[in-house]
């Protein structure tokens, strides 16, 4: 089976019901997407499928075939960080950073659909992503920062 990830084709053999997250991490060594809960409740595994944020731990690898998958590893273009990554760096958001990939992917998806989100829009759209370190105010600020670009 073929998966198109970050504009690159990969041939993979998922076992039955294997999640996209498991394939990314264990078969393809794309470990930027994180395991946090395995039930789609924390957002650490968030990737984009056809531009929309999805929880890769709840997505069967099979169901992603033929679709355009973007992971945190695919955001950087020609050595240049994505504006959202730049904004997160500029605001110096993180503590442990384990939620970073999922937060950034969710933010990218939000801004693609809603380039100028209000604070309420941001909070609502990021509700499914957990940060245990409590960097939420900085995440909101970074997304606002990125929306100005």
């Amino acid at each position: 089976m073929e998966l198109l990830i970050n504009n690159k084709k990969y041939t993979v053999e998922p076992h039955q019901d294997e999640s996209l997250l498991s394939v990314l991490r264990h078969q393809l060594d794309l470990t930027g997407s994180k395991y946090g809960c395995g039930e789609g409740a924390c957002g650490a595994c968030t990737v984009l499928i056809n531009g929309t944020a999805v929880r890769s731990c709840m997505t069967k690898a099979e169901s992603a075939a033929g679709k355009n998958i973007t992971t945190i590893e695919g955001l950087e273009k020609n050595g240049k960080l994505h504006p959202v990554q730049q904004a997160f760096l500029k605001v110096d958001v993180f503590q442990c950073s384990y939620c970073a990939s999922g937060m950034i992917m969710s933010a990218v998806s939000l801004l693609e659909k809603n380039p100028k989100p209000s604070t309420q829009d941001i909070m609502r759209s990021m509700q499914g992503n957990i940060c245990r370190c409590g960097t939420h105010p900085r995440i909101v600020k970074a997304i606002q920062e990125a929306s100005k670009v």
């Binding site: 930027g32 945190i72 760096l89």
Partner: peptide
């Protein structure tokens, strides 16, 4: 002074290897 997080780029790019990522 407010020096930014050391190795910040490796975290926002998903490159940092936590133990759970190591192989």
């Amino acid at each position: 002074t407010s020096v930014p997080k050391v190795n910040g780029v490796s975290f926002v790019t998903g490159k940092h290897q936590y133990v759970s990522d190591m192989k």
